[in-house]
């Protein structure tokens, strides 16, 4: 009899503990949610940009999620890019050196990007052609809507590029 009493008491205690754990879990969930980026931050997740505003041979820098995105409209004298190209003659790449994260500078006379930190070089397609960088400049997720590019969303063109492994 004594055993039964103890087990009943224990059962209730465990049930109480389990129910309390549900409560604590819910509170933890609410706490977890409070750390999510605020709406104004989330609003920066996608950026739209008008590609036609770039003149041939010109580079524009778009700020996307706090990072620079280089939009280059290539001229025929620059490297040919096939798969890495956006809308034919645009190069759209994340302006962050794949070596150690510095921001490369465009050198108009050589038509390359040169990284000031360790001398890495990329051609007009963003491909690494010299120095320590292990891979080309990344292509950010994008979606095309006519002449407008939406950075931060994956459109069919981006997915195609990704499948071929050209985005990284």
């Amino acid at each position: 009899m004594a055993d039964e009493k103890v087990s009943r008491r224990d059962f209730l205690l465990y049930a109480m503990g389990a129910w309390a754990a549900v409560g604590v879990g819910s509170v933890l969930y609410a706490m977890y949610k409070t750390w999510e980026p605020l709406p104004e931050v989330k609003a920066q997740a996608t950026v739209t940009f008008d590609l036609s505003s770039v003149e041939p041979g010109q580079i524009k820098v778009v700020s996307w999620r706090g990072k620079p995105v280089f939009v280059l409209r290539r001229t025929p004298d620059m490297a040919k890019c096939d798969g890495r190209s956006v809308k034919g003659d645009y190069t759209v790449v994340l302006g962050i050196c794949t070596h150690l994260g510095c921001i490369p500078n465009w050198e108009p006379d050589k038509k390359i990007w040169h990284c000031p930190c360790h001398g890495g070089e990329y051609d007009a397609c963003g491909k690494n052609i010299f120095g320590p960088p292990p891979r080309p400049l990344d292509v950010p997720p994008f979606k095309l809507e006519g002449n407008t590019i939406v950075l931060g969303e994956e459109g069919p063109e981006y997915k195609q590029m990704k499948e071929k492994g050209l985005t990284v």
């Binding site: 009943r8 008491r9 049930a15 109480m16 129910w19 549900v22 409560g23």
Partner: peptide
């Protein structure tokens, strides 16, 4: 609702003890 269940459980345990 959660707390009403909690009251039920704690009341049962209290009675038992």
């Amino acid at each position: 609702g959660y707390l009403v269940v909690m009251v039920g459980l704690t009341f049962a345990w209290k009675k038992k003890i």
